[in-house]
Amino acid sequence: MTTADPVRAERTPPPRRGGFARRGSVFLTTHPRARLALLLSAPLLWLVVVYIVALLLLLVTAFWTVDSFTGEIRIDWTFDNIVTVVTGALYQTVTLRTVGVAAAVTVIDVALALPIAFYMAKVAGPRAQRALVIAVLMPLWASYLVKAYAWRSVLSQDGILEWLLSPIGLHTPGYGLTATIITLSYLWLPYVILPIYAGLERVPDSLIEASADLGGGTWRTMRSVVLPLAFPAIVAGTIFSFSLSLGDYITVNIVGGTSQMLGNLVYTNVGAANNLPLAAAIALIPIAIIFGYLALVRRTGALDNL
């Protein structure tokens, strides 16, 4: 029958190239698992070897010691570093301070990002929307360091903030934790705006209109329709601001005065103190906190919105 079917005969591709590429292609078409293996092998190899193995070895290093004479790392298994980090008053204080700063930065950023992202996604016209996306993205290209340094000069005693505030009887907060929170909120704001904007853009206008047709006012629509749909995107934004603040040590150096965060302790122990095992043990604190946070927010679907 098939040979008598002229249409079918015409559609069958002639076996022009019986070469290696053709046979490989046929094999891959008929073997989806091989296709998958081919796609996955290179990136998985890279991520596992470069990243997961490095992270696990960091964990292992936390159980080693440094020879106090030579400064070399010795493979003497010990819990000393972990005990020091868990029980040391310094580490507890700094951990609480760091988490407090990261939480404050996250709250400020979400509070600022929500109205601006909503305006971009649902209120502004197409032209204004494009201009706003550019306006939000552009500061990302200014160096992180330059922005932190700009805040150093803005907040300094003879800076622009003091110049603006002193006529109305207020003063710059100066360098310290407040300055750190302001600067970090400033630095991570675009990272929080962008996922929230993308999330709000995906909220269908039809649902918002339906809510209005059913008598929902602006706030009711916002609370019962827009926010629940955009929630995973909001959480995705908080992962950025929280995690980026948790590991920061450079901004604290620039505007934080003498305040220390976890990152400073890690950095000092890698560099000046040359105690990599202790640094590794300290680094386990933010790792544990972030994994806890990721586990907490996993169910919201936030990880698909990063």
Binding site: P43, L44, L47, V48, V50, Y51, I52, V53, A54, L55, L57, L58, T61, I73, I239, F240, S243, L244, L246, G247, D248, Y249, G263, V266, Y267, V270, L276, A279, A280, A283, P286, I287, I290, L294, L303, D304, L306
Partner: peptide, 25 residues
């Protein structure tokens, strides 16, 4: 998919010290 986002979800200092330790030590 968690593995892909991990390098950006964990603070940079963790990635930094883990790779520093991996390469050098």
């Amino acid at each position: 998919s968690l593995l892909v986002i991990l390098p950006i979800a964990l603070p940079g200092i963790i990635t930094g010290i883990a790779l520093n330790n991996f390469f050098r030590t």
